[in-house]
């Protein structure tokens, strides 16, 4: 589904991603872990070109998205992204946050988008917040809205960049719950997180990044019970 070949990214002369090769298959739940500054966010953001790769190619569903002629807006419509700080639009109601993109990209009429928004809000138990503004919601509520806002575009893959890191501990669970349901429905997911429980329970594959490289990858059980690399063991002993 997403094919990454020799992807490198530098900021100035700081090499942040060092020739990464990776393939993400439909239905996979790939969890990316690793120390701060190892390039996890940068890797994820390259997948939908929020960061322009310095070298290498990324192919999504047969289209080379790193090609300068690729229609990046069309491609992004099929890739949802959830940010650490939610990034809801504070100048709009929740309903409009959700319906703006489907309507403006002509994916849906306003009426269809409104129905979709209502259904999605019901699904995360926030239907009574449709006419509220983001400033009136808690962090956990904001992040659940951010997830359904991305889902309203009916994406083929969802990218999550530390979706629970900015939340108070008591709100982490409600967001992970929504992500678990999404995983059960078969969504292809790439998740950067520090939630090892989630990685174990939901992930189908865990990637460990360090120094701009994917040092080790495995299915979660083997990854956590029998890490091969010393760096992975050091990291896990610190976070577990």
């Amino acid at each position: 589904m997403i094919d990454v070949k020799a992807l490198s990214k530098s900021f100035g002369d700081h090499l942040v991603l060092d020739s990464i090769d990776q393939h993400i298959y439909p239905g996979e739940k790939v969890v990316i872990i690793g120390p701060s500054g190892s390039g996890k966010s940068t890797f994820l953001r390259c997948l939908n070109l929020l960061e322009e790769p310095s070298a290498g190619t990324i192919t999504f569903d047969g289209q080379v998205i790193t090609d300068p002629k690729a229609d990046i807006d069309k491609i992004r419509q099929q890739m949802g992204m959830v940010f650490q700080h939610f990034n809801l639009f504070p100048n709009m109601t929740i309903r409009r946050n959700i319906t703006l993109a489907p309507v403006r990209t002509k994916l849906m009429s306003q009426a269809e988008a409104d129905d979709t928004a209502t259904a999605l809000l019901k699904r995360v138990g926030l239907e009574e917040k449709a006419d509220a503004y983001p400033a009136q919601l808690s962090g956990g509520q904001k992040q659940r809205i951010a997830i359904v806002r991305a889902l309203a575009m009916k994406p083929k893959v969802m990218l999550f960049d530390e979706p629970t890191s900015a939340l108070d501990p008591e709100m982490v669970g409600e967001v992970l719950e929504v992500m678990k349901e999404l995983a059960q429905e078969g969504m292809t997911m790439v998740v950067v997180t520090h939630e090892m429980g989630f990685a174990r329970e939901v992930g189908t594959r865990v990637l460990f990044m360090d120094g701009g490289k994917i040092l080790e990858e495995n299915e979660p059980h083997a990854f956590f019970s029998d890490p091969k690399e010393q760096r992975t063991r050091d990291f896990l002993s610190k976070v577990l």
Binding site: L50, D73, K74, R76, G80, F83, N87, L88, A101, T105
Partner: peptide
Amino acid sequence: VDVGQSEAGRSLGLN
């Protein structure tokens, strides 16, 4: 305006 705002808009496929 926080760059996260335009990143969120662009990531939804808005031009």
